[in-house]
């Protein structure tokens, strides 16, 4: 049954969106071998890649800057020439190649000062949180470090002037945190993503935390988690540092809860599926098992065949 290129591209796109952390290029090169029409594939999956990059908060190097810029739906700007991405730290938009992630054609994107003040304060507080909990730190006695990085960004409402900002019905600042690690020598990769929508006027912060892990030594094991916390702010005049403290508390609590969930699944669901050993604590006596079956049918009784321990 022949398939049109459009159908192939739509199927390929759905695989791109499911790529584990750091493996989107591997998925793409597999798809190139399967589809066999590189030009059509690349043109077709561009949209899926842009979606993948912003959904996964892929972060890219900005020329001349020490930090990484986070690709987020909150900083995506559609222009007549195509998609541009906002680096709110230096109020500049760029064109980002969705495949090789190179950054080019900077253009200034002034942020109204009434929004920039709050944004800069949130950014400073978020940078501190990132440095304390996500930026890879060398560990004692561990020579073979995992690769990867952490990045964060704060996006203001995207309006052109202070007048427009004042006219906004709801002013929402978006904070993104992303931390990725890859350790191919130990067959794993992982990503922690946190998305926070800060809306002081409504005394609200809405979050979404997602953690993905891929472990692939002689197999394919994946962890996928989602959690959507909700924070009520005590007052609209709360400081950025105080907001970050509340966000930090939520994430720390979630991290602890997730650690507990592993124990819960191990001692609950997993144990309930298969025992380590039968109730008798001995392995099965395979020589007796067929005779046992016969005997059970004759006598109508039951005593499991186990090797004497």
């Amino acid at each position: 049954m022949p398939h049109t290129t459009a159908e192939q591209v739509s199927l390929a796109s759905s695989f791109v969106l499911q790529a584990p952390p750091g493996e989107v290029n591997d998925v793409l090169s597999d798809l190139r071998l399967v589809v066999g029409d590189d030009a059509a594939l690349e043109a077709g999956v561009t949209q899926a890649l842009e979606e993948y990059n912003t959904e996964q908060l892929v972060s890219v190097d900005v020329p001349g800057e020490s930090y990484k810029m986070v690709l987020s739906p909150a900083g995506r700007i559609q222009t007549e020439e195509g998609t541009r991405y906002l680096d709110a730290r230096n109020a500049t938009t760029y064109v980002v190649d969705p495949i090789n992630l190179t950054v080019s054609s900077p253009e200034p994107y002034p942020i109204p000062s009434s929004l920039a003040t709050v944004r800069d304060a949130l950014q400073k507080a978020l940078d501190g949180y990132l440095a304390r909990h996500f930026v890879p730190q060398p560990k004692a006695g561990q020579a073979d470090q995992a690769l990867g990085d952490a990045a964060c960004a704060v996006f203001p409402p995207l309006v052109a002037s202070d007048e427009d900002a004042a006219a906004l019905g709801n002013r929402v600042w978006i904070m993104e945190v992303v931390s990725s690690r890859y350790k191919p020598t130990n067959y794993w990769s992982g990503r922690w993503r946190a998305h926070w929508e800060v809306e002081p006027d409504k005394l609200e912060v809405r979050g979404n935390i997602a953690v993905d892990v891929h472990y692939y030594e002689q197999g394919n094991v994946q962890l996928h988690t989602t959690y959507a916390p909700h924070i009520t702010l005590p007052s609209a005049s709360i400081t950025a540092e105080q907001i970050l403290q509340l966000v930090f508390d939520e994430e720390a609590q979630y991290h602890a809860k997730l650690t507990e969930s592993f124990e819960k699944m191990r001692d609950g669901g997993f144990r309930g599926l298969r025992r380590v050993l039968p109730v008798t604590r001995g392995k099965m006596d395979w020589d007796k098992v067929l005779g046992y079956r016969l005997g059970q049918e004759l006598a109508g009784t039951r005593s499991p065949p186990v090797a004497s321990s």
């Binding site: 472990y215 094991v221 962890l223 592993f262 699944m265």
Partner: peptide, 19 residues
């Protein structure tokens, strides 16, 4: 792998020691 290694990877992504 499921309940040990995966949990440890989460610990690499976000440090609890910082907490």
């Amino acid at each position: 792998v499921y309940f040990g290694k995966t949990r440890d990877v989460v610990g690499e992504l976000r440090s609890v020691v910082g907490d």
